[in-house]
Computed example of a mutant assay.
Amino acid sequence: MNLQGKRVLITGGSSGIGYAIAEAMLAKGARLVITGRRADVLQQAKEKLRPSGFIEAVAADVGTEEGRKATLAFALEKLGGLDVLINNAGGVRAGRLEDTSEAEIRAMIEVDLVAPIFLTRSALPALRASGDALVVNVTSGIALVAAPFYASYAGVKAGLAKFGESLRREMKGEGVHVLTVYPGATDTPMMNSNRAGPELGFVRESASAVAEAVLDGIQNDAFEVIRGGETRSKMIALNREDPAALDKRFLDLKPALAEAVRHHSAL
């Protein structure tokens, strides 16, 4: 896809990966609407990005029906249609499952899975009318290789990945492509409360590096973008061929990992 002039909606676009994707897309000539829950942070992001091209912002919570309606209505009004929807907004709460509250689990389900499904569903008429449209679902590397203490998060992100795979096949031949992105540990505000480092497998890369890979995937009509390099590729292969070996590796890391991620929360 050539992004010049494309009309793009990015959820969670005020910081982290969403902001980096917005910045990269503006450089390619796209016209953007970004959304987020925090009006002050969103406004700051808009002002920083404005010199790079056309951008508008709407403060809304896509985890709610009202927020999704407001977001899509605003985007269609400001852009005059929609060519690209990037489902990037997300939340995480790590820790042992029995120590994770029902409210925290439901928040992850609503923001990380329900919101992208319903927002995409509502946006499909506009995307189909484009004739050359794209849905990008930002999931997580944990959807491919699930780590302990991320059971709920892994579940919803894997659900989003399979939603995208199914939708890609459903939309085949109808002018709507679907790309699934699997970031690894990324240096974003969402990771601020995670104390796990490279010794535990959390090697962080910049949000701009992820955004660059996403744009490369978009421009080459890729099906997926997987970050983490050769290390992640080997883990994916081992998880498929000898999952018990990976279980053993995680068993050895469990005490240190439990302590490092028990306060990891961004909801």
Rank of each mutant, 00 (worst) to 15 (best):
L134H: 01
T71G: 03
V176T: 02
E230K: 14
E104F: 04
V135K: 01
G18L: 04
A260K: 11
G201R: 00
A154L: 05
I105C: 06
N194D: 07
G90K: 10
R93H: 12
Y182A: 00
E230Y: 01
F74A: 03
K157P: 02
L32H: 06
A196W: 00
G29S: 05
V145N: 09
E98R: 11
G217V: 09
A70E: 14
D252M: 11
M191W: 07
K46E: 07
L127Q: 01
L127D: 03
A107Q: 11
G80L: 02
T11H: 01
D247T: 14
A196C: 02
H264Y: 12
I21H: 01
I142K: 00
A147V: 09
E259T: 06
D83V: 13
N192D: 09
A133K: 01
M235Y: 06
R121D: 06
R249A: 15
G229R: 10
A237V: 15
L267F: 05
G229A: 13
A60T: 06
V156W: 03
E98M: 15
A39I: 10
G91Y: 00
K162F: 07
R168A: 11
E212I: 09
S122Y: 05
T11A: 03
E102R: 09
L167F: 00
A260R: 06
N137F: 08
P189N: 11
Y19F: 15
V178M: 01
Q44E: 11
L113N: 00
A129Y: 04
A244M: 15
V178T: 01
K78L: 04
A256W: 04
D61H: 10
E56H: 08
A237C: 05
V145T: 12
K6E: 08
Q43H: 04
E98V: 13
K172L: 02
S193F: 01
A70F: 00
R169G: 05
E230N: 10
E47N: 15
Q4C: 08
F250C: 02
F74E: 03
A196M: 07
A126C: 02
D40L: 07
D132R: 13
A133L: 13
G80Y: 11
A146E: 13
D242I: 07
P255N: 10
A45K: 12
I226R: 10
L144H: 07
E174C: 05
A207I: 14
N192T: 09
T180S: 02
K28N: 06
A245F: 06
A161I: 00
V138K: 02
E212A: 15
V225F: 13
R50N: 09
S52W: 10
V176S: 08
I17M: 04
A213H: 03
A207Y: 01
A123L: 00
K234Y: 04
E174I: 00
H177D: 13
R240D: 10
E56S: 10
E224L: 03
G5E: 11
L167N: 02
S130W: 02
L76W: 09
T120A: 12
A115D: 08
L200R: 00
E165Y: 01
V135H: 01
L246C: 14
G229H: 15
V92P: 03
R204E: 09
D83P: 08
F202W: 13
L49V: 11
G175H: 02
A115H: 09
N88S: 13
I10R: 13
V92R: 12
R93I: 14
R31N: 01
K78T: 03
L42S: 07
L215K: 11
S52A: 15
G63K: 07
V203D: 06
L76G: 15
R169V: 06
G81Q: 07
L32A: 07
A244C: 14
R227T: 14
